[in-house]
């Protein structure tokens, strides 16, 4: 199952998903560079390994839990001081265009 060559439009779509703006030149450069990496990954993509289970994580741990005990929170002044823009003890963001999904 070969995946088709990466297109400029796909790179533009991915940049939008990742909240990055690319100039036309950057779009060309990145498309070429990412296509190279994906070409290199064609060896992996071509492997017939349907029966092999995935390994997402190297550790075989389960049920690592903490007790429901309150720990100190951060100092509010320090938290807000790190923020680029604060109003009324909250973080300010520009106009939001849509509801959360």
């Amino acid at each position: 199952m070969a995946v088709a060559q990466l297109t400029r439009e796909e790179v533009a779509h991915v940049a939008r998903l990742a909240r990055l703006e690319l100039s036309e030149d950057e779009l060309d450069t990145f498309t070429g560079q990412l296509a190279d990496v994906l070409d290199h990954a064609a060896d992996v993509e071509a492997l017939e390994i349907d029966d092999v289970p995935p390994t997402a994580h190297p550790l075989p741990l389960v049920n690592v839990l903490r007790e429901d005990v309150v720990m100190p929170s951060l100092d509010r002044v320090e938290v807000l001081a790190a923020a680029p823009h604060v109003e009324d003890g909250r973080f300010v963001v520009p106009r939001i265009l849509g509801e959360a999904p």
Binding site: R66, D68, V69, V70, M71, P72, S73, L74, R76, V79, L80, D88, G89, R90, F91
Partner: peptide, 27 residues
Amino acid sequence: RTATKLFCGCPNMFGDVPNTNVCPVCL
């Protein structure tokens, strides 16, 4: 209805002063 949040020890409390029950994890 837990005492703390899902992934950190901050209080799970409704109606507190904004941005007081926060830590590196939940921020």
